[in-house]
Write a protein that binds this DNA or RNA. Structure first.
Lengths: 209, 209
DNA sequence: AGTGCATATTTACACTGCACATATAGGCGC
DNA sequence: GCGCCTATATGTGCAGTGTAAATATGCACT
């Protein structure tokens, strides 16, 4: 039995809208993810707790346990969502472009744009100790992102090895570069005076043979 | 007055050695940092707490407050220590080498080696929400690391712009690449079959003009 | 109407960071 | 030698956290 249903309205405004209190939320999993994301992006990782998510949605402190076995599971789902969006950012720039170099550049720009728009989420996506990096759903989205980069890393730069090796090295090169750039950029580790009007394309050297 | 000094020896073995109990530790700050580092690297970030550090050293739960105003301050000091070591890793490979390309390669290899030897610490060093990234001591060590990369990024690759721009872009390129590679490597994001016998030098394309 | 099961609540517990009051002892002037 | 100041430690308390376990609710299905 809920203690004082009306009371919650008196204590403070609900942050998220919720149908006039009923026992079963109906869409709690999604609502929790949305609340978690808002908390993460607006209040920072250290202010994101399961209890605050539950509060924001208007359910009891332990209700999230029915949808996520532990906090890591929630964060993992959030990270997976992030990779899906990262993929969309890259695709948006690629679609409608046919030139090979232009497609690769568009993917890189989309990648960096995502990291800049969602720095906290991007950091979470690479935090080994907060997400279950072998979660199947997460891995699915990770691979989809890598596949886009892989597709668009063909035929540039001079690398050693047979065709297979060269392809692998092109991919690793491109992902390393764009990930490092995105993270250093959002972590403010680049000198300000270096950053005037720069984009990732400016730090990509001329790789023509 | 300490409640049952002998008791702690009965409950469990102390992890760190400590002089037969005396009120003032004498070197608590250093001891706490060492304990924190051991906890971080051996038990993972989520098992690192101020109280566990205090326990490991054999002082009361709130003793750390005299040396670190809050947990972030301790983690920041730990991260600064990490940057100092990263610098040492790079210097070790560089010293004694005079060839310019060889020095740059040595710096890169040292950088990656550090990340592989201390993945948890390396992650902490770039965790925006856990360290005070504007701490003066931290910044000092960060800049020392960047300076090494900067020194050894001269005169390679074809970049646009005047001399100053080119230098900035060479540095950003190199740091992005090595940081991204180090992080993706330690986060296990590269396909296993791509990694056979690879080093960062293999994914660095031929940049000769 | 009754029943089963997914989904919620309540209660409980160990642990955390931190604020605050208090205790200790080593060093310094005398 | 002596007393006091201050850095460094302890003790206590509190709000907040993740999670386990028992209990309540109500929708779907018969």
């Amino acid at each position: 039995m809920r203690k004082g249903v009306g009371k919650v309205y008196v204590v403070h405004m609900r942050t998220e809208y919720k149908e006039p209190t009923r026992y079963h939320h109906g869409n709690l999993r999604q609502a929790l993810l949305a609340a978690a994301r808002r908390l993460l992006e607006e209040e920072g990782h250290s202010n994101l707790s399961l209890r605050r998510c539950a509060d924001a949605v208007g359910v009891s402190a332990t209700a999230p346990q029915n949808h996520f076995p532990n906090k890591t599971a929630l964060l993992t789902a959030l990270a997976a969502e992030g990779y899906a969006e990262l993929e969309a950012y890259m695709r948006k720039g690629i679609d409608g472009t046919s030139d090979r170099d232009a497609r690769r550049n568009a993917a890189l720009l989309g990648y960096v744009a995502f990291a800049q728009d969602h720095p906290a989420l991007y950091e979470l996506m690479f935090a080994r100790d907060r997400v279950a990096s072998n979660d199947p759903e997460l891995l699915h989205h990770v691979r989809a992102c890598f596949a886009i980069l892989a597709e668009n890393s063909k035929g540039f730069g001079r690398f050693d090895g047979d065709d297979e090796k060269v392809a692998a090295r092109q991919q690793m090169f491109l992902w390393s570069l764009v990930h490092g750039y995105a993270q250093l950029l959002t972590a403010n580790r680049f000198k300000k005076e270096s950053m005037l009007g720069e984009s990732i394309l400016d730090i990509l050297p001329d790789l023509r043979s």
